[in-house]
Design a binder for these strands. Sequence first.
RNA 1: UGCCUGAUGGUGUAAUUGGCAACACGUCUGACUCUGAAUCAGAAGAGUCCAGGUUCGACCCCUGGUCAGGCAACCA
Length: 561
Amino acid sequence: MEFPENEKRPLNFIESIIEEDLKNNKNEGRVHLRFPPEPNGYLHIGHAKSICLNFGLAENYNGLCNLRFDDTNPEKEDVEYVDSIKEDIEWLGFKWDKEPYYASDYFEQLYQWAEMLIQQGKAYVDEQPQELISQQRGVPTRPGTESPYRNRPVEESLDLFRRMRAGEFKNGQMILRAKVDMNSPNMHMRDPIMYRILHQEHHRTGNSWCIYPMYDYAHGQSDYMEGITHSVCTLEFEIHRPLYDWFLDQIIDGSYRPRQIEFARLNLSYTVMSKRKLLELVQKGLVTGWDDPRMPTISGLRRRGYTPESLRNFADRIGVAKRDNVIDVGVLEFAVREHLNKITDRVMAVLNPVKVIITNYPENQSENMVLTNNPEDPEGGVHDVPFSRELYIEREDFMEDAPKKFFRLSPGREVRLKGAYIIKCEDFKKDENGNITEIYCTYDPESKSGGAGSQRKVKGTLHWVSANHAIDAEVRLYDRLFLDEDPAGHKDKDFKEFINPDSLQVITRAKLEPWLGKAGAGDKYQFQRLGYFVADKSSKPEHLVFNRTVGLRDNWAKNKG
RNA sequence: UGCCUGAUGGUGUAAUUGGCAACACGUCUGACUCUGAAUCAGAAGAGUCCAGGUUCGACCCCUGGUCAGGCAACCA
């Protein structure tokens, strides 16, 4: 599995920071990153960018990258998600340092530090209702007001905090707050909450805790404990950075200190990129699961036939910056085609068949045509494709009254059958509704591929399958990822309004060349002129199912309209 | 009308201590081809949000605006 190195690529701003740190021998020259997902859903293409960034940086600078589960909110988390996240990262080809880490492993240490802050008068237990606290926090344009409990005696807070841990209070009855600055223009600094009471079983710590630390309190401290040097996260945490640093200041005891660096998350046009919404699709049964091939999740894309290399290339290509961006899905699709084009065997299949009868080809005769598996791969080999008197071609490849720029089959015109003969359309038959039912052609025996008379040129080449030899399979087509319109601008509306119903899933049957009968789950092919397909995981030899990964570029379709 | 970010061809990213804006995708030509794909060759496309200033010289530094995004969860 070779991943092409882009030696010449200029540094992104994070790489510049790292190189600067390296030059100054900051943190003894260590480079240690982390990818910190909350196990509350499956990873999607946006996470892939972050994974490639963090693990990629570690690889390029001879550093390390931890996988850390930010599991501080048991209400939303589950081991199913933990497992899927590990699988997806490994599939992308990255290796985390040692075993995965969990924020929940630090609960005791975090608790001890919290007691220390209380003792230093830097944290206090507040027992006001949530609404009141929120109200006192005020609005960004005006200072907040201090809680009446803000200056309660240290011993009182300590006692209350211990009783919180002991389970003496109900959810929401007490919280632990850091004493920072109620007048700060930064809302996150107005005495942020450090701990809340949650009588809720945790997927790892079970029932041993009923108080859980908040993200802001847990994250920086976790980075510190793991020796993280560069804590890369998305832009929405930028405003949290002063708090990240404030908490760190309370425990730092040496020169080492992790640094938070923010970058702009990925936005893909026509694509739902919100975990919350994806969860909704799964829960409402609008898709078959997180790995439904239509989902923009890593597992969905995998099932759809995307390769790790193409995703990594995509991540590399889109770059990293602090400016908000919307990447066109076309860039993603380009990346998959680019890779699949190099590794897939070319095969023939007909989605919407119409019968072609070669009138001058003997009945009951057949012969094997030899087709190159992959013209890009000299060692890709060849395979046989049976040819006979009755064939199927794509209904779209025939036109009764064709414009001059139509390079396919129409009355009186010649066309090559890929890997076989040149045929000429002599006649055709229609049913009472005007649909073409049969096309009659003659073939030129001298024009066989690779033969002496094969040099003759015709404008078009069609894919085909022999009617009597073809195998029947289920084919699922997907159009783009999800949305009909670009979601930008409708963020507050119900996104389902923008799902294109036709794009959800078109299941149809197709005629395939017999060689495809050997296809196993995950095998990828390029169906001539139809695009790239992958045999689905549910495929069995007697019931083949192919998912379309992405189509081929089609200039004829483009110019037609 | 608080604070924090950001603004470079259609899109995404570059531009070493200021030195006539580069790369990729897309677009358009042409070649080749037994996939209207791929490949190859070539072209067009921005003068860097605006207005001032500093400078021999500004995408880069300064001042003032404009526009866009973010921030007021006991989520992460």
